[in-house]
Design a binder for these strands. Structure first.
Lengths: 252, 252
DNA sequence: ATCATAGTCGTCTTCCTGACGATAAACACG
DNA sequence: CGTGTTTATCGTCAGGAAGACGACTATGAT
């Protein structure tokens, strides 16, 4: 027996993506330019409708692939391949968040290593990495002087929630490695923490902490000098996903 | 211009509630008996459709009030009154999670002090507090021998996620006070931690930790002997919501 | 009066952290 | 070719937090 459609109001369900990466020592998010009303021409988070036969995580992975070409890897196999970390963030359902109709958006958070360039349907002008600081401040401007903020809909709130999730989660998990290429040095990992938290960390104490946590980093044997200075050991992310004790975010 | 309804598939959106409390030294969740197909007669989490003009948080607060009589208080004013803590948990949208049609459920987590008795439309048989251990194990049985598990739909997964959220969140926040009455002793708070984590904590170290964290507990001046033994100081929850450094969950 | 119960205060050892000195190995430049 | 700069890595030390546990206190139960 089919369910009575009059018993509940109809909703549209979308997924929106907070895709974060670290570029030039700054935490950046992927923004796309809206081609339609409402908020035409304004920047927004990438996203789209969930299809009829699709799970929420599948829809988010599909959107992520469409916007960035990234594969999302299974949450149970973190940082194994160079796919991005993808997790559900929160759901936003204010009746007035979309002026057209009732839309509930299930936001997802994706963390990716530094990527060559965004691609959105081949139109380079319609997608960009922007520092979250610019996207979140009132009337933010990009380096080219073009206004990038405020974001459309409630996307500033969604982005802020995603950034806060990332900031707190790298404290007690090995998630920061999701911002790094498959092989990375301790210094590169430290610069990820510094960019995400916006603080400076002591290189010696950081080195002691991460190399002293069993299962966090696995040496690959290689070294690199791509950061200049003395050659640094290369590591892969180890199996440990929980950092205990956690990395402490310095108090202001 | 109205939005083209054919451009997206229609969804029903519901809220489901994981309502947790501590009773008799055990972490318990509220379960209601289903009166309709599918899963008729089985136990499930309370929940219902989101109304057309309602925000998700409003819908969750309304369902919570209907099922328990509890007011949800604003997240910005924790443990001020004796309302329950309410927060969004996660959203579940597998296309097959409800056999009738496509339903996306936004699960919420509520934490409440020990309550007199559940009320669900006045029918005492259709709502109960059950230890989460019974609800989550395969073929769990209540104290009266009646089977309470497995829960309907994907509610076992939702409950497990809610329990895990509660377990991890009391580590680094003052959320455990949401399980306590407005005034409580250090020992009562410790028993909350012990019930939620399922471990025994050293009373002396616990006392030192919580009374030594500024802003966590505020003495009211009163004492009580309701737990027997030497009279204990009564406290209210202080303004601090973040515990730094966190309370450490013992290994194993 | 004695015991059981629960709360509270201290002590001691161990571990972690933050601050920071020192050394090592690359490159850039004159 | 030395010198300076950059980054990586190791070591030391003081202060603080946590786990283990002893000791004392204030109630009610018998």
């Amino acid at each position: 027996m089919p369910y009575d459609p009059s018993a509940f109001p109809p909703f549209a369900v979308t997924v929106d993506l907070v895709v974060l990466t670290v570029r030039r020592h700054a935490l950046c998010a992927l923004a796309v330019r809206r081609g339609e009303q409402p908020f035409q021409g304004r920047w927004a988070l990438p996203g789209g409708f969930v299809r009829a036969d699709e799970d929420l995580a599948q829809a988010a992975a599909r959107e992520l692939a469409e916007e960035t070409g990234l594969r999302a890897h299974d949450p149970s196999a973190p940082a194994q391949d160079n796919g991005a970390h993808l997790e559900q963030l929160a759901t936003y359902g204010d009746p007035k968040r979309d002026p057209r109709m009732r839309v509930v958006s299930v936001a997802h958070l994706a963390l990716a290593p530094d990527l060559p360039a965004p691609r959105a349907g081949g139109d380079a002008n319609s997608a960009r990495w922007a520092p979250v600081e610019e996207l979140l401040q009132q009337g933010g401007y990009g380096r080219d002087g073009e206004p990038v903020a405020p974001l459309a809909f409630d996307h500033a709130q969604i982005l802020a929630d995603g950034v806060e999730r990332a900031r707190s989660k790298i404290e007690y998990s090995s998630l920061a490695t999701a911002f790094c290429p498959p092989e990375f040095t301790v210094g590169e990992l430290r610069r990820v923490y510094e960019a995400v938290w916006g603080v400076a960390l002591d290189p010696r104490n950081f080195h002691r902490k991460v190399t002293g946590t069993p299962g966090f980093l696995v040496p690959t044997g290689g070294t690199t000098t791509r950061q200049g200075g003395r050659p640094a050991q290369l590591f892969r992310a180890g199996g440990a996903t929980l950092l205990n004790p956690p990395m402490l975010r310095p108090e202001v």
